[in-house]
């Protein structure tokens, strides 16, 4: 009997360690959220959102970064969503070695360091255009978002029952119509979720913007000119020696995190609410 007791004791200890380590690993999350709320919330008021940065020692607001982030996300979406959805469809429809290779390549693309994507956007857009621009930053972010759009499209469409297509073909619809009027609408919520999560991810990216979008303390809507973005502003302010700038960085971090978390939660809840019942 002693041997069994020992085994059970070992099992108990192991279980305890698993629980302990699991709970320890979520502590940083709360530490980070606590810092953001404590230091960031105080800075935030209406003015913070609707004014431009001021020279030190003042900090001013983050309107330039909000507009810039919006512009960058918009360009990235235009770059990545159409081709990503079509490529996702390609992966669902095709069973050959090229499709398998492409699937792995897309995972590889997703794993490439963001700074390398930044270099590429610099070489492909900044250099030929002769200067930093929102366009180059948006393209860099678009390349990063592309794998997410492809994968969410593939995973969603794969789950649409084949009988739906048969029903459409049996009514005399062609392939194009079947995909656009039957298959894609049935998968729209899944694809949309993937796109939203992709936006949440690229909206927080900094590295690929350092030498593409570059940053800009003024308001700019022109895609051919540099723009600021929330993460760029956080980086620049955080590394600055001025206390008010650092405080503004906390405020901007709070805004950025709130945006990211809202999308995440929205996708979780909305995914359930809006999923097409099959």
């Amino acid at each position: 009997m002693g041997e069994v007791k020992l085994r059970i004791l070992k099992d108990r200890i192991f279980t305890f360690i698993i629980y302990l380590l699991t709970f320890l690993s979520v502590i940083p999350l709360f530490a980070i959220l606590f810092s953001l709320v404590k230091k960031g919330l105080g800075v935030i008021n209406l003015n913070f959102f609707i004014t431009l940065p001021k020279p030190p020692p003042d900090a001013g607001g983050i309107l330039n970064a909000l507009v810039g982030t919006f512009l960058l996300v918009l360009i990235a979406s235009i770059v990545s969503i159409p081709i990503g959805i079509v490529a996702g469809l390609f992966l669902v429809e095709t069973r050959n070695r090229f499709a398998n290779m492409l699937r792995v390549l897309i995972n590889v693309l997703q794993g490439l360091p963001s700074i390398v994507i930044g270099i590429i956007a610099y070489l492909w857009v900044v250099k030929p255009m002769g200067g930093f621009s929102a366009l180059s930053g948006g393209i860099a972010l678009g390349i990063m978002m592309l794998p997410m759009v492809v994968k969410s499209t593939e995973e969603t469409i794969k789950l649409i029952p084949y009988t739906l297509r048969e029903a459409s073909y049996a009514l005399g619809a062609d392939y194009f119509t079947t995909i656009f009027k039957v298959v894609l609408p049935a998968g729209i919520s899944g694809i949309l979720n993937g796109i939203l999560l992709g936006i949440a991810r690229i909206a927080g990216e900094t590295a690929p913007l350092l030498f593409t979008a570059f940053g800009n303390p003024y308001l700019n809507f022109n895609p051919a000119k540099p723009v600021d973005s929330l993460p760029l502003l956080i980086f620049n302010y955080a590394m600055s020696p001025y206390e008010r700038w650092q405080n503004a960085a906390w405020g901007a971090s709070f805004v950025l995190i709130a945006f990211v978390l809202l999308i995440n939660i929205g996708v979780k809840l909305g995914g359930r609410r809006w999923r097409v019942k099959l």
Binding site: T206, F235, A238
Partner: peptide, 10 residues
């Protein structure tokens, strides 16, 4: 989901 720059800042 927390952006890299916020990890760095923190």
């Amino acid at each position: 989901g927390i952006p890299s720059v916020i990890y760095g800042f923190w």
